[in-house]
Nucleic acid binder design. Structure first.
Length: 106
DNA sequence: GTTTTGACGGAGA
DNA sequence: TTCTCCGCCAAAA
């Protein structure tokens, strides 16, 4: 895997402002990761220095093992969860993709 | 070299 | 609305 992709993923996660959250798909999209699963893998392996608690699943829930920590950390930032689920419509991060887009072929 | 699994997303039931 | 199945890419066994 390209180290740059990992770096972009980490940058994207760090770009999430407090009080807001993003989904794995969003992070994968803005970081141009090949797959959302790569985001989870990157966070799992190298996400110790990142605000990983601001990254949730597409449906607003989080991973079972992390749910408690996630909710607690997010709660400290003002992101309240209802029944273990977060209103993405309210807290979803307005992800802005980097200007580096795939070049036009002509 | 192949097979399995994972901090996931989306569609179908 | 929630649950299940399939597809996705990469690393580990």
């Amino acid at each position: 895997m390209d180290e740059e992709t990992i770096e972009r993923v980490r940058t994207a996660v760090q770009s999430i402002p407090p009080g807001q959250v993003a989904t794995y798909g969003d992070v994968a999209d803005v970081s141009r990761a090949p797959s959302p699963r790569l985001v989870g893998r990157v966070l799992s392996e190298d996400g110790h220095d990142l605000p990983w608690h601001r990254v949730l699943r597409a449906n607003g829930t989080c991973a079972p093992h992390l749910a408690r920590e996630q909710l607690e950390l997010l709660r400290a930032e003002g992101v309240l969860a209802d029944d273990g689920k977060i209103n993405l419509r309210q807290y979803r991060w307005a992800a802005v993709p980097p200007p580096e887009e795939p070049p036009s072929l002509f």
